[in-house]
């Protein structure tokens, strides 16, 4: 009996091995030529967007959108409309950005994936928040949460938006809780940029609550991630916030060091406005280094 069972388990093992071998050997499903072309355009647009070439990104997204519409690739259409909205927003066309997102929620709609709809709702909420339309921002957060069911990839972003809304209304304890929840929800590997945002926001709330030690810790974490990602604008922000936190804690020397670093980054970015802002902070510390912008203004 034992021998028979042993034989059966061996057979099962052999069959499993064969199935795994077949699975390893199987080729991935081949895409049709139109989908492939659209994906290539979309990838090119993504690269352009991340390099700050928003006009070029917009054009490629529009082309990819047309191709996907011609073959009714619902999931790809939703993603490209989301990305296109981001490109329009960066190009200072807020109406076009909203239009792309609204199309995803208007009838007759294709069966778009709920996770992408949740992301689109979060993006609309962010735009309303930037436009200081808090009630609309809140309604879109709720809509996003409806699609997200707390498990999708933008769950952390929605919490972060709630934290920003609470911070704006001076509900600091609530804001801190949302920010902490966002830090917990965001995955360090996959959502680095948003995680850095959550740490930075948490630091800002802590600073508003006069908790300098916690603020410094949060800003340091945000700064470490932003340096890893290589985003100068955000590194500059982190350094300024770190300077402010040390200044608030009474460590003027440390504050000076951070502000000086922020000034160097601003000058390296070629941002006169940014450099002037940091000089204002240094002036408040009664130390004003000479202007040294050699890059493009």
């Amino acid at each position: 009996m034992v021998l028979q069972m042993h034989s059966q388990s061996n057979s099962a093992l052999l069959i499993s091995f064969c199935l795994m071998l077949v699975a390893c050997g199987s080729a991935p499903e081949k895409q049709n030529s139109r989908t492939e072309q659209a994906n290539k355009l979309s990838a090119r647009a993504d690269a352009a967007f991340l390099q700050g070439e928003f006009e070029s990104a917009k054009n490629d997204y529009l082309q990819a959108l047309r191709i996907n519409q011609s073959v009714e690739n619902a999931a790809e259409i939703a993603i490209i409309r989301f990305n296109l909205a981001r490109a329009f927003h960066e190009l200072a066309y807020p109406e076009q950005a909203h239009l792309q997102l609204d199309t995803l929620f208007s009838e007759p709609a294709l069966p778009y994936p709920p996770a992408t709809l949740a992301a689109a709702a979060a993006l609309k909420s962010q735009y309303y928040l930037e436009g200081k339309e808090s009630s609309l921002a809140l309604s879109w957060i709720e809509k996003g949460e409806g699609y997200c069911q707390k498990k999708c990839t933008v769950a952390g972003s929605l919490l972060l938006l709630r934290a920003q809304l609470a911070q704006r209304d001076n509900r600091l304890d609530e804001a801190q809780k949302f920010a902490d929840d966002a830090v917990a929800a965001l995955k360090p590997g996959m959502q680095q940029m948003e995680l850095a945002n959550a740490h930075r926001l948490s630091g800002e709330i802590s600073l508003a609550k006069n908790d300098s030690a916690r603020a410094i810790h949060s800003f340091q974490q945000a700064h470490a991630i932003d340096r890893k990602l290589g985003i100068p604008g955000k590194i500059r922000l982190d350094l300024m916030r770190l300077g402010a936190s040390h200044e608030r804690a009474g460590a003027a020397a440390a504050a000076l060091s951070y502000y000086s670093r922020a000034l160097t980054v601003s000058e390296a970015m070629g941002s006169k406005q940014g450099a002037d802002e940091v000089r204002g902070l240094l002036k408040a510390l009664q130390i004003i280094p000479e202007a040294n912008i050699s890059g493009p203004q």
């Binding site: 390893c24 050997g25 199987s26 080729a27 991935p28 499903e29 081949k30 895409q31 492939e36 659209a38 994906n39 290539k40 979309s42 990838a43 993504d46 967007f49 990819a64 996907n68 999931a75 790809e76 993603i79 490209i80 989301f82 990305n83 981001r86 927003h89 960066e90 992408t116 992301a119 979060a122 993006l123 962010q126 930037e130 933008v154 972003s157 972060l160 938006l161 920003q164 959502q191 940029m193 948003e194 945002n197 930075r200 926001l201 985003i231 100068p232 604008g233 955000k234 500059r236 922000l237 601003s266 970015m269 941002s271 406005q273 940014g274 802002e277």
Partner: peptide, 26 residues
């Protein structure tokens, strides 16, 4: 190698609720 090559997919850009616009003074 053929099996390792994944067909390209359309990917959603990562969310940035503390937008680039806020971070980079023009």
């Amino acid at each position: 190698i053929k099996n390792m090559m994944e067909p390209g997919e359309t990917i959603i850009l990562p969310m940035d609720s503390y937008g680039v616009t806020n971070a980079q003074p023009k």
